[in-house]
């Protein structure tokens, strides 16, 4: 009877804390979305200040009549101040209408292709980076001071010193002899899949995977270096903590104490770190997309800046910011699971 009662009470307590947790997650999501919108607004404003979509018309020979220029300006909505213009664009964007490019194409049609490409590129690289980054960090901390630890820390520092846009090209340089020796593109350097090929089923998947290897490495390596350094520091702190010593004092052997009591504590600070640094890694990915010829969001954004196309810049930024929000929210969720203290 008592056990039953206790069980029910515990169930009630659990669901109450679950409700609180969900409430917390929703609040975090709202906050993150707000920040994301502000960032897009800022980009839109910067773009509106910076871009001059009428420049070409003004410099034509013979000169374009002023009436034509004015008509174009009205068509682009340039007669409105920035804020209402952004409001109009955002209202459209919410319903899936992202406006038109500077040369009149509909943007919405390209959104899913661009976003899909970026996600296909980032998802595997990012997941690998978090796994290996945390893994290396913990591994290093547990043998801190050893030659292996020093070597891995030095490698991480070096990797962080190599710019992302160099890393991709260096990978190509290193792999080139292998491709040449094989006489075929074992690991292709460019694009998502072999253009014009009519592969299907497993063969098509294999082709995609081979295209994915080098860019994934280029995306993951710097992130692995980044995360492993933080993870190592976090694990070191835990390793020297009083609660780990106390757990061993109760009779847990060193390894078990670390696994049962240390690991989770050491992973907790990583969740906010991932959330906080993902935007920076995404910016690095822009280079990777360019170098490996993947037509994702980053490539879109850079091209749009070159063409001074404000709507595309806003759309690409919005999509990237949404990715940042989603990853951040996943990190919030992970933190909630890792650290029960955040649930109350």
């Amino acid at each position: 009877m008592t056990t039953l009662g206790a069980g029910r009470r515990r169930g009630a307590a659990l669901s109450a804390s679950a409700v609180r947790a969900v409430g917390r997650l929703l609040a975090r999501l709202a906050a993150r979305l707000g920040v994301c919108l502000a960032a897009v607004l800022l980009t839109y404003t910067l773009a509106a200040l910076s871009f001059d979509p009428l420049a070409e018309l003004r410099t034509t020979q013979p000169p374009t009549p002023q009436s034509v220029i004015d008509a174009r300006a009205t068509a682009l909505g340039l007669d409105l101040p920035v804020l209402p213009r952004f409001g109009q664009w955002l209202a459209g964007a919410v319903t899936g209408d992202f406006g038109t490019t500077a040369d009149g194409h509909d943007i919405a049609g390209e959104v899913s292709a661009r976003a899909g490409t970026s996600i296909r590129l980032f998802l595997p690289g990012g997941v690998l980076a978090v796994l290996f980054g945390c893994g290396f960090g913990i591994w290093g901390a547990l043998r801190a001071g050893s030659a292996a630890d020093k070597l891995s820390m030095a490698t991480a520092l070096l990797l962080l010193a190599i710019p992302v846009f160099v890393l991709g090209t260096v990978l190509k340089l290193l792999w080139l002899p292998v491709n040449e020796a094989a006489g075929t593109d074992l690991l292709p350097f460019s694009g998502e899949r072999t253009p014009g090929s009519d592969l299907a089923g497993w063969a098509a998947l294999g082709d995609r995977l081979r295209h994915l290897v080098l860019p994934t490495i280029a995306i993951a390596l710097p992130q692995i270096a980044f995360y492993s350094r933080y993870q190592r520091a976090a694990m070191l702190e835990v390793r020297d903590s009083e609660f780990l010593r106390a757990a061993r004092g109760r009779g847990l052997r060193r390894g078990r104490a670390v696994r049962r009591h240390g690991l989770r504590m050491a992973l907790i600070p990583m969740a906010p770190l991932v959330a906080f640094s993902f935007g920076l890694h995404l910016a690095g990915g822009v280079f990777t997309e360019r170098i490996f010829g993947w037509h994702g969001l980053g490539d879109w954004l850079v091209t749009a800046i070159e063409r001074q196309d404000a709507n595309v810049v806003a759309t690409a930024t919005l999509l990237m910011a949404v990715l940042v929000v989603m990853v951040g929210w996943l990190a919030d969720l992970a933190l909630l699971l890792l650290d029960p203290r955040t649930r109350t």
Partner: peptide, 23 residues
């Protein structure tokens, strides 16, 4: 800190890039 959060979503390199045509 709100300003910081907003700017952290927007990678610095992209923000400067957007401004570059004007400069």
């Amino acid at each position: 800190m709100m300003v910081v959060d907003v700017l952290l979503v927007l990678p610095p390199i992209l923000a400067v890039a957007v401004l570059s045509p004007a400069l």
